[in-house]
């Protein structure tokens, strides 16, 4: 401790030396250290940001129409993001979450072409409400029941339902990974090697042309927030979607959104 006791050495019988106690007061030292710690704690970032890599197609006009890859109407799922707006006279102002102050996003989706095979527009540009195949969903996390089984809800369930072939295979190799078929999981190096093999297998499944998988087109109204976009991109990752892209809203989409709101007022 901070006391140094000078004893006379031996059993003290030989001579009577004066005992000296040297005490160093460490309190100012502790004060100073605490100040420094406070400084470092306030000035540092502990959390490193994560990144989400996205690849988008080029903006160049494709010269040859035949080279364009067309998603078949069967596979196409369009997800439309929108910000929730206040109804009534203040229309146009966005609803803000009272707890965290975030913009509230709404998510809509439809399969295939807008308005189904017959389209949204009748003779003379009339809007055919009965053809509106837009549906509303929500961003929801998985529900875990009492046994611990997970079940997806909201938009995730819809995506999973469309991508069940791929997800089934992914679940199989996940089980294999857990059973140690990709190599033992004992040490860190082993685990990394096994993960690499697993990722390769998963990527092969995602690219497998024989499996039926959806093509997801992500669209958003200008008001929807960035968080919604990241949420949708997350769903793509969670549900192993291999083909998705971000696209612009078309007139038909806007008409469908308006039409949906008109018929489903709260």
């Amino acid at each position: 401790m901070a006391e140094v006791q000078q004893s006379s050495g031996g059993d003290g019988k030989k001579g009577h030396q004066k005992k000296m106690a040297i005490r160093v007061d460490f309190t100012p030292m502790v004060d100073m250290n605490m100040l420094l710690i406070t400084f470092f704690m306030l000035c540092t970032t502990m959390i490193k940001s994560q990144t989400l890599t996205i690849a988008l197609p080029t903006n160049e006009k494709v010269q040859n129409e035949e080279n364009m890859s067309q998603a078949s109407a069967d596979d196409a799922v369009t997800i439309i993001l929108d910000a929730k707006k206040k109804p009534g006279p203040v229309a146009g102002t966005l609803v803000v979450d009272s707890v965290n102050g975030n913009v509230v996003n709404e998510v809509y989706y439809y399969f295939g072409k807008p308005g189904g095979d017959n389209g949204m527009f009748g003779a003379g540009g009339a809007i055919l409400s009965e053809n509106n195949n837009l549906q509303k969903s929500e961003f929801l996390t998985d529900e875990v029941n009492s046994v611990g089984d997970r079940s997806a809800r909201g938009i995730r369930q819809i995506i999973q339902d469309r991508n069940k072939d791929v997800l089934k295979e992914i679940a199989e190799i996940k089980k294999k990974l857990a059973d140690g078929e990709f190599g033992s999981l004992e040490t860190k190096a082993d685990r990394e090697a096994a993960m690499e093999k697993y990722n390769e297998a998963a990527s092969a499944i995602r690219k497998n042309e024989n499996l039926k998988k959806p093509v997801i087109i992500i669209k958003s109204t200008p008001e929807a927030s960035y968080r919604g976009l990241v949420d949708v991109l997350d769903e793509m990752q969670i549900n192993s979607i291999s083909k998705y892209q971000i696209d612009n809203l078309t007139d038909a989409d806007l008409v469908m959104l308006d039409d949906y709101r008109k018929h489903h007022q709260e």
């Binding site: 690849a55 109204t221 008001e223 960035y226 968080r227 990241v230």
Partner: peptide, 22 residues
């Protein structure tokens, strides 16, 4: 996170145009 999609899309679109697609 509350930036509107409009603005994010503008930035992304600018990058796409100069072939910075990823």
């Amino acid at each position: 996170q509350n930036t509107s999609f409009d603005i994010i899309h503008m930035v992304m679109d600018n990058l796409q145009t100069i072939k910075q697609n990823k």
